[in-house]
């Protein structure tokens, strides 16, 4: 079937089997391998992307639902057109050592961006609850939480453009 949607700011039309999962569409068909798959029970959150602004687990989302919608992946988070400018949340993870092996990082970032968009001034407890669907095995979460708090503040700082 044919599915048309906006992917990282660009219109895309793809022909897919209706049973295709969004994570597989991104990784296998579109070569966007920044979205990771870390489990098979929708528990780990490494595959989180933004669909119409909501953080969703792309390993459990069937691709036909994308039709007419807007999808943002980790590759679309930084500046457009291959720019190296980091999103404030990415910069916050960098500054606060919020990543180690990097595998959970794309999902963490997408979850964090959605969280901070909805709640511009989250508390530490709200961030910890908000990350409940994302597993990290490296960091013990402490620096991820610090990153999300700093990233949320930066996203909503005057002049941040958010």
């Amino acid at each position: 079937m044919i599915v048309s949607f906006t992917l990282n700011g660009r219109s895309r039309t793809v022909e897919i089997e209706p049973s295709t999962l969004v994570a597989d569409l991104l990784r296998e068909n579109l070569n966007l391998t920044g979205t990771h798959v870390g489990c098979d029970t929708s528990q780990c959150g490494a595959c989180v992307v933004l669909f119409d602004g909501e953080a969703v687990k792309s390993c459990t989302l069937l691709a036909p639902i994308l039709d007419g919608g807007t999808l943002t992946t980790i590759e679309g988070l930084s500046g457009p057109g291959g720019s190296n400018a980091l999103h404030p949340m990415q910069e916050a993870f960098h500054q606060n050592h919020g990543l180690q092996c990097g595998f959970c990082t794309p999902g963490m970032l997408m979850t964090a961006v959605a969280l901070a968009t909805k709640n511009p001034t989250p508390t530490e407890a709200e961030v910890r609850r908000g990350l409940e669907g994302n597993i990290c095995r490296c960091t013990g979460y402490q620096n991820i939480v610090a990153s999300v708090l700093a990233g949320a503040a930066a996203m909503h700082a005057p002049g941040s453009g958010e």
Binding site: R27, T35, I74, S78, C101
Partner: peptide
Amino acid sequence: PRRKEDFRFLTGRGNYVADIK
């Protein structure tokens, strides 16, 4: 210093085995 390796992971440009074709 902040880590040299961060940039590729933050931007989805890591190269893990499952990414290889």
